[in-house]
């Protein structure tokens, strides 16, 4: 019954060459504890599907990404992601670049086990030029409209971060936006949920209304409790984005020497060591 795993068990079940979806949006509710663990692992050669934020940056910096499928990579309050930029500018990663609405249709298609979903979005733009594998279809009805057939974004595994989950893998978001996390969970063969806090199933109702229960255990392979696990991205109402730390990250990522120091200080140990190092840094910065 219980699907509770450790961070290492989740990452240990992933293999090199897999296609991995990551929930959240930009620098918001990213499963950063799982991403950090993935960076420490031997897994490599990944195809990563996500509305990109610093998760993409960390994975690029660790050399884990072969191909990225995305519409953007941003940290919101800091528009551009230095590691992602570096990876693109040195040719270190391959990119499938979609419009963000096309991307959502790719998720919907995969979640509904459809081969594609049609949308006009993309026509006329260079998204069609740089993705020559994209095909168009014509409406069979009177309108005869030409539409882009956005292929299903299938994935071997998805990693998402929720505010609450129970041991069976049901999960709840308590912030203002679900992002596309339920679509990732339905699109993937296996979905792993990290959460701020594991709760008894009976306690979901105390935390939020029924419609906040976004993820069903039927879609979930494993669940892991990672308090402050979305740090430094936003995870309202449990914690806001750590803007000061994000600034430190961005500044460090833009300079090789500073990045080595950042990595040594924050990313050389496990998740507990990371959280300790962050707390120490926060106390020092006060």
């Amino acid at each position: 019954m219980s699907k509770v795993l450790t961070i290492d068990e989740v990452v240990g079940s992933l293999e090199s060459g897999m296609t991995v979806g990551i929930g959240g949006w930009g620098s918001r509710r990213k499963p950063m504890a799982l991403v950090r663990a993935l960076c420490r692992s031997d897994v490599t050669d990944l195809t990563v599907i996500t509305y990109g934020g610093p998760d993409v940056g960390l994975l690029c910096a660790a050399g884990k990404v072969r191909r990225l499928v995305t519409a953007f990579v941003t940290m919101d309050s800091i528009p551009l992601e230095p590691h992602f930029r570096q990876a693109r500018q040195t040719g270190a990663i391959e990119l499938t670049e979609y419009d963000e609405g096309m991307f959502m249709f790719g998720l919907y298609a995969a979640a509904h086990r459809l081969p594609f979903l049609p949308t006009p979005v993309g026509l006329g733009s260079d998204v069609m030029r740089v993705n020559p594998e994209l095909k168009t279809v014509r409406s069979p009805y009177e309108d005869g409209q030409e539409l882009v057939a956005v292929p299903a974004l299938k994935m071997d595994a998805a990693l998402i971060h929720m505010n609450r989950a129970d041991a069976r893998g049901n999960a709840q978001y308590l912030g203002a936006d679900p992002y596309m996390d339920d679509l990732f969970a339905k699109a993937a063969d296996r979905t792993y949920v990290s959460c701020e806090r594991l709760v008894d199933t009976a306690d979901f109702a105390k935390e939020g209304p029924p419609q906040s229960m976004l993820i069903s255990r039927a879609q979930v392979t494993g669940v892991v409790e990672t308090p402050n696990g979305a740090h430094f991205t936003d995870c309202e109402p449990d914690h806001r984005r750590d803007e000061a730390f994000q600034k430190l990250y961005a500044k460090s990522a833009a300079d090789p020497e500073a990045w080595a120091a950042f990595r040594d200080r924050f990313l050389s140990g496990d998740e507990a060591a990371y959280q300790d190092a962050v707390r120490t840094w926060q106390e020092e910065s006060r």
């Binding site: 990109g52 995305t70 519409a71 953007f72 990579v73 941003t74 528009p79 551009l80 992602f84 930029r85 693109r88 500018q89 670049e97 979609y98 419009d99 963000e100 609405g101 096309m102 949308t119 979005v121 993309g122 026509l123 006329g124 733009s125 260079d126 998204v127």
Partner: peptide
């Protein structure tokens, strides 16, 4: 110079 990505521009 890599920028943001296409985001919602095409749609």
């Amino acid at each position: 110079r890599q920028l943001l990505g296409s985001r919602g521009g095409p749609g």
